[in-house]
Design a protein around this nucleic acid. Structure first.
Lengths: 212, 212
DNA sequence: TTATTTATTTACCAATCGGTACATATATTA
DNA sequence: TAATATATGTACCGATTGGTAAATAAATAA
């Protein structure tokens, strides 16, 4: 991509910016863009909607974030490291069963949080345009797969610890959890309540694999 | 809607059509449109894509089917009475458990059928545009709810027949089945295989409610 | 044949899409 | 002060969106 060798800077204090300063806070702007993409999906969210939501004119958005696709990538990074950071926390639970339960219950709260759009942005945004479409769609599919893979890894660890029986197919179990997550996201966007989602989680976990 | 009293026709043989005949078969055209909407979603499918897929010029499409929204409604009706007719068949199974199992297993075959787009068109098409958007979105949400309601009815019948325990919340059970269905649709559009979907169904049904 | 009815073709419409050229405003540096 | 660098606002770009006017083609009815 870039052959230029980066010179190691002596970690000086950040130089004062030259030129006219930004009239908006970049992180706040990303949060506003996040809500638009989250509620509308990637393709359905238009630059006009975004400029209005951010309160910034288009050229400023393009200057600060690149184009729509790059803006979405930055928003996506903010989404995964911000609102969705609880996923990594859930992985730390001592048993696989507790990991799954904590994850799904936090998902319920997350999906039914009234201060944010309902459902999962990644599930929401990926559905538009279906099969082999844009680069963003492909990336979102890849993201969902890596999400599934991290559950698989956690469950394999659980198996090695004797926490899950040896006969359990951890990939299938991970895919099952992901399916419940995605299904609940659809439910949430259609207006399912917190109580309804909790009941789904209860049913989904009733049969957690035990014994041989 | 319409105050005109329809005169009872003596059921004559259909009069010969006047004017130039249609150069295409309407049902075949709807099937082609179905595949486009199914693969791409409602909003992402453009009229240009549709004209190309149908092999018909735009004015002919508008003359035959109204506008894009009406075309989608006709396609939707064809979808529910055609490819998705197996749902009603599954309802006829003797027990609630068999209804759920047959439904989900048929969904697996349906989603992984290589001759059609993956996943469920209604789940796929509804996700774009999220919350309180177009009339089509609202209709699709309503459709999904009616779908859930028909499972609820079937499960209530099962309860009255002693086939399901009295303590079962049939609405929650119906919502659970719908969630699995929707989650698997997302999985199918991301490339899940038939075997993977089957494993999900197995896990989802392992804990079917029995006893008190 | 001629009139009437309906379908198809071509060529277009205004609105919106993502994206940008350019002049102007506001900051630091010299 | 002037020079330089960056951000903003206005006003626009070509492409595409859903949708249509109008001329022509192909059928039946008289």
């Amino acid at each position: 991509m870039n052959d230029v060798v980066k010179i190691e800077q002596p970690a000086k204090k950040p130089a004062k910016p030259r030129g006219r300063p930004l009239a908006f806070n970049q992180e706040e702007a990303l949060d506003k863009a996040l809500k638009v993409f989250w509620a509308r999906g990637y393709e359905a969210a238009s630059m006009s909607e975004l400029t209005e939501a951010l309160g910034i004119n288009k050229p400023s958005i393009y200057a600060a974030f690149g184009n729509k696709e790059e803006l979405f990538r930055k928003v996506l990074a903010r989404y995964t490291s911000g609102p969705v950071a609880f996923v990594k926390e859930a992985m730390k639970e001592p048993t696989a069963r507790q990991v799954a339960e904590r994850f799904l219950l936090q998902v319920v709260d997350f999906f039914s949080d009234r201060s944010t759009p309902n459902g999962c942005m990644i599930v929401q945004a990926a559905l538009t345009g279906g099969q082999g479409s844009s680069a963003v769609q492909q990336e979102l599919i890849a993201y969902r797969k890596s999400f599934e893979a991290s559950f698989n890894e956690r469950f394999e660890l659980a198996k090695s610890q004797g926490d899950l029986p040896q006969h359990v197919n951890t990939k299938q179990l991970a895919k099952y959890i992901a399916t419940i997550h995605q299904g609940m996201s659809v439910q949430a966007t259609s207006g399912a309540t917190r109580e309804e989602l909790r009941a789904i989680v209860e049913m989904a976990l009733k049969n957690w694999p035990v014994g041989s």
